[in-house]
């Protein structure tokens, strides 16, 4: 009897991620959704620059590696190359999506580009070794904010879901996390919805996943999961920030 299986949409390549990093969980959730929707053969994923830069090795669907921050623009091109058939997702971190690629993020949302965006927010630059991210919390100590993020000096964190929810464009915006079984189940539902929306032609769907970086946060994996509850969720509340189709149903 099979009790646990690797999703088909994941390759056999072992993840290179640090112990306690939640990228692996999110990769798996995305792959499960691709399997469940039966879309692997027409899915093209866009990997970012950041810790998940080599995501292209882990997914069995076609994959493209984009320049830092440009994944939504690349996704726009791939989607428009064959809008009927291509299912396109980007997988981006906070530096990629909310700093260097902010323009591409906002404008693909404003266009309601029919793509799925998986946004990993762990409040730090992981790959380069722990620098301040656009989502680092006020007071958070990082390599480039060694005395804590001083909001008078470098401003406030960017709340991506809240910000994008002000646009008329996007279809669906939800913030989830993966620091407990319950939260993982909820994240899966959100990711499924974000892909389904695309299959149904509904448009831009972004799932922000509050994630951990024990290595650069300087914590044990268990403490990192707690830090998400104690520090991140209060600043970045979980929930649905926009669901246009659901809102329409309620109105009707």
């Amino acid at each position: 009897m099979v009790v646990f299986e690797k999703p088909h949409a994941l390759t056999d390549a072992p993840f290179h991620y640090c112990p306690g990093c939640t990228h692996g969980i999110v990769h798996r959730l995305v792959a499960e959704v691709i399997d469940e929707l039966g879309i692997e053969g027409r899915t093209i994923g866009i990997a970012p620059v950041g810790c998940s830069v080599m995501a292209y090795n882990y997914f069995n669907c076609d994959m493209i590696e984009a320049a830092h921050g440009r994944a939504p623009a690349v996704a726009t091109g791939v989607k428009r190359a064959d809008p009927e058939n291509h299912i396109v997702f980007t997988y981006q971190g906070d530096g990629d999506l909310a700093s260097i690629g902010m323009a591409e993020t906002v404008h693909s949302a404003a266009r309601n580009e029919n793509i799925t965006v998986i946004f990993i927010n762990n409040a730090i630059y992981g790959m380069t070794g722990g620098q301040m991210a656009p989502t680092s919390l006020p007071g958070q100590i990082t390599q480039t904010s060694p005395y804590g993020r001083d909001v008078n000096h470098c401003g406030y964190p960017v709340k991506v879901c809240e910000m994008l929810s002000e646009l008329d464009g996007p279809e669906y915006l939800e913030r989830v996390t993966v620091n407990s079984v319950k939260n993982i189940k909820n994240a899966k539902k959100a990711i499924l919805k974000a892909f389904k929306n695309q299959v149904e032609g509904k448009g831009f769907s972004l799932v922000e996943v509050l994630s951990t970086c024990p290595t650069n946060w300087g914590m044990t994996p268990a403490d990192a999961l707690k830090w998400v509850d104690e520090k991140m969720i209060p600043y970045y509340p979980l929930g649905v920030y926009k669901d246009r189709s659901a809102a329409k149903e309620v109105e009707a």
């Binding site: 984009a66 690349v74 996704a75 091109g77 791939v78 428009r80 190359a81 064959d82 291509h86």
Partner: peptide, 10 residues
């Protein structure tokens, strides 16, 4: 980068 996307798709 949109060009990059379409070119990737062939």
């Amino acid at each position: 980068n949109m060009v990059y996307g379409v070119a990737s798709a062939g």
